[in-house]
Nucleic acid binder design. Structure first.
Lengths: 209, 209
DNA sequence: TTTCTTCTACTGGTTTTCAGGTATTTTTTA
DNA sequence: TAAAAAATACCTGAAAACCAGTAGAAGAAA
């Protein structure tokens, strides 16, 4: 197997240099480029073949998550590993959903990086230890009292999320609109929110929708 | 290292038996139990030590995702692998967020199962090939025209998600309430939804919140 | 410089929600 | 089986959202 043609994208040139040095002696990969913004990378990809991209989330011109998606759309064979300092779960999840094959924090060991690269190029998704912890750790949202909903309430909640009015829902469920209204108000109370808009947002955060 | 004390939870007894047979000859694990519902499992866990759970999502008495979370809360050292037929990304993600160390489809090969078990017990998160594809594949949501929002619209969208009224928002942004109203209506039009409730749901699905 | 987009603001009317209750019936569950 | 929880239904009035338009000003892009 040929060496993996690898490019590094990071807004800090120092990080690029550091990674280059660290990975210089790897037998199975070759650093063919380093870029400090998304535009430079995209321009390069149009002419040169690349196997692996080590990508930072924070870039001056484009969001790394969006960039990830763009690359995957146009060059679906390229493996992307995110190398970032962001420890928010939502960001990690989003990069994965956008096609990244893994996520490492910048303080990961070279060993972890090696392992993740190896795993990623064979089609797996790989996280560094710390990232696994972040993913598995229950969110504050989940820790804080998730209201206990009754069956009817859940039902009405999801219908509300579909943009239905109390009257719509009442018709659908063969209820009085006034009843639906009561349920709606109970939901708003239980979630301690001000209106249905916030209710939907809260429900979504607690993965009830 | 001792053998991994493993239990299987699935609402189909046949699946339990099948897995038992398949894993019977594994050197590094021992099937110590099989349950067809959550209650049985929880009862067992209270008295017997367990290292690994192969867990189905569909159970008669409790949702596998919730069960996963419960187990992790009480017995944080137990490794949970989800073995399911559900191919929806949201379900996969949610099990992972609830502490599962991996997700396999039931038609995965024994080899994949072995690999995932090995990987999971060392603290990684592991998906079977097909699952990796599901996760990486862009959702229809993302494929279908995600409306292009202006800066103001994004701003107002997120304030709406906080349950704020047009007047609140107007005050906060030093605008006329009527202006905010216009933006709100444009948002509703752009997303092709009926009201703010559905707007928030749609925005959430497209990860704009 | 002209065109396009975005942001701003308005009118006027209709529908729906929200907040404060109360109260009966059905279903669970202890 | 009794008590608790859930589901049902109603009232009133104020507040907010929603609908369907129009239109000027600022900024960016062509």
């Amino acid at each position: 197997m040929n060496k993996l043609r690898t490019v590094i994208v990071d807004d800090h040139p120092i990080v690029i240099e550091g990674l280059k040095t660290l990975l210089k002696n790897e037998a199975n990969l070759e650093i063919v480029g380093g870029f400090s913004d998304g535009a430079g990378l995209l321009f390069y990809l149009n002419t040169e073949p690349v196997d692996l991209i080590l990508l930072d989330v924070t870039l001056p011109d484009i969001n790394g998550m969006d960039l990830c998606q763009m690359i995957k759309e146009r060059f679906s064979t390229i493996t992307i590993l995110i190398l970032s300092n962001h420890t928010e779960r939502s960001i990690i999840m989003q990069t994965i959903q956008n096609g990244a094959s893994g996520y490492l924090l910048k303080n990961s060991s070279l060993d972890e990086l090696r392992q993740c690269i190896a795993s990623a190029v064979t089609g797996n998704i790989c996280y560094s230890k710390e990232v696994v912890e972040i993913i598995s750790r229950p969110t504050k949202n989940q820790l804080r009292n998730t209201p206990q909903l009754t069956r009817r309430e859940k039902q009405i909640l999801s219908l509300l999320a579909e943009g239905k009015t109390s009257q719509n829902i009442a018709q659908e469920l063969f209820l009085s609109p006034l009843t639906v209204d009561t349920h709606r108000r109970n939901l708003i109370q239980k979630f301690e929110v001000k209106n249905v808009a916030e209710l939907i947002a809260a429900a979504h955060q607690q993965q009830l929708l």
